[in-house]
């Protein structure tokens, strides 16, 4: 039985392509936070490193709901794509080898969204990642009741 302290060493065994299993294991990537401009728009960069078949960061944190401007970089020697959530329609971009593009997303919060590369089995190999919107709903949308205990 594994205990919590073993997490890092065990993750190292899982990390990368064609090691412990065929692809990268879901939810084992890095974490980063989007930066925020004075007008509240957020920005961040996501990237596919060479031969990683994974997005870096694996979890991107948005500090609040709103507009996220993404720079999307494919540093891999293969062609991928990116299909991202956004209110209105999902946003698609093709990513040729060694390419760079952008996407503008509108996301409500709080909540956890996923995106991936809808090509081959890119998603199953590891090209699936999360965008986590933190924060609370607007004050006017909260229930009229005293603050409640949370888990």
């Amino acid at each position: 039985m594994t205990i919590a302290q073993d997490r890092e060493s065990l993750l190292a065994e899982l990390g990368g392509q064609n090691k412990a299993t065929i692809g990268a294991v879901l939810g084992t990537g890095s974490i980063a936070k989007a930066s925020e401009r004075p007008d509240g728009t957020m920005e961040a960069t996501i990237r596919i490193p060479e031969d990683a078949m994974a997005w870096e960061p694996g979890v991107l944190i948005m500090p609040h709901a709103g507009i996220l401007e993404l720079t999307i970089i494919n540093d891999d020697k293969n062609t991928h794509a990116c299909l991202l959530p956004s209110n209105g329609d999902r946003q698609f971009i093709g990513l040729l080898n060694h390419s760079k593009g952008t996407a503008t997303l509108e996301l409500d919060g709080p909540g956890c969204y996923w995106y991936g590369s809808p090509a081959g089995n890119d998603e199953g190999r590891g090209l699936q990642a999360a965008i986590v919107v933190t924060g609370e709903v607007p004050p006017e949308a909260k229930l009229d009741r005293p603050a409640q205990p949370r888990p």
Binding site: C82, L83, R90, Q91, F92, L96, N97, S99, K100
Partner: peptide, 11 residues
Amino acid sequence: YVDAGKAFNHS
């Protein structure tokens, strides 16, 4: 980098 452009509506 090759310019991948801007993401667009999937529809």
